[in-house]
């Protein structure tokens, strides 16, 4: 299992939590190491453009596309990591990885919302939309969110992406998705205490 280190921070905390639950992950930006991985975690906090440029500068786009789209290796995108899997983002001009037919949009403010503050920072619960192995034995969870942007999937399109959960910040937004071997969460499991530990354990052991 590898955690892709593309100079975008927040990498060690995932390795720390995996270690805590007894799993070892290699933190790497070496394309050859990634090519041999049986699972991939694409994490990250930060800006969309910078994330894509870092992946590109490190020559990781080809190996990631090959592993995820061809070899169908399980991949978990966390926060910006999930957003990069989409086609594009309002946060940047660079196209995303386009594994998922979705775009990333900024939280929509409206006069209808009383006192909406962006970014959304803090703990929130999930409303499960579809059962998934990723949430096995996770009941009534609370996860930590830190974001100004979220996924937007046009439901009229014949999309193969499943929305696993939504969360509510003035309106419902997508908080977890699944599409074949691709998983993505908007929140930070690596900082979400027991709920996050269980989610990472599920990803490692059930996929």
């Amino acid at each position: 299992m590898v955690i892709v280190n593309y100079n975008i921070g927040n990498i060690s905390s995932i390795a720390n939590m995996l270690q805590k639950i007894g799993h070892k992950a290699t933190v790497t930006n070496n394309p050859d190491t990634i090519a041999n991985a049986n699972k991939i975690i694409l994490s990250g906090v930060g800006a969309f453009n910078n994330g894509m440029l870092q992946l590109s500068n490190l020559n990781l786009l080809e190996v990631l596309n090959e592993k995820v789209l061809h070899d169908k290796v399980p991949v978990l995108g966390i926060c910006l990591g999930m957003q990069l899997m989409c086609k594009k983002s309002e946060e940047g001009t660079v196209p995303g990885l386009s594994w998922i037919d979705a775009e990333v949009i900024r939280f929509r403010n409206s006069d209808l919302f009383q006192d909406m503050r962006i970014p959304n920072i803090g703990w929130n619960d999930l409303k499960f939309e579809k059962k998934s192995k990723l949430f096995t034995d996770i009941d009534d969870p609370k996860f930590y969110f830190l974001h100004s942007y979220h996924l937007n999937i046009n439901k009229s399109d014949s999309t193969s992406t499943t929305i696993l959960s939504t969360s509510h910040y003035h309106y419902d937004f997508i908080s977890a998705i699944e599409q074949d071997n691709i998983l993505g969460v908007q929140f930070h499991p690596e900082k979400s205490r027991k709920y996050g530990m269980k989610l990472l354990k599920n990803f490692v052991e059930l996929y």
Binding site: V45, G46, A47, N50, L80, P119, I121, S148
Partner: peptide
């Protein structure tokens, strides 16, 4: 800093 790491950071 916000451009590079995102405002939320």
């Amino acid at each position: 800093a916000a451009n590079k790491f995102g405002s939320s950071t």
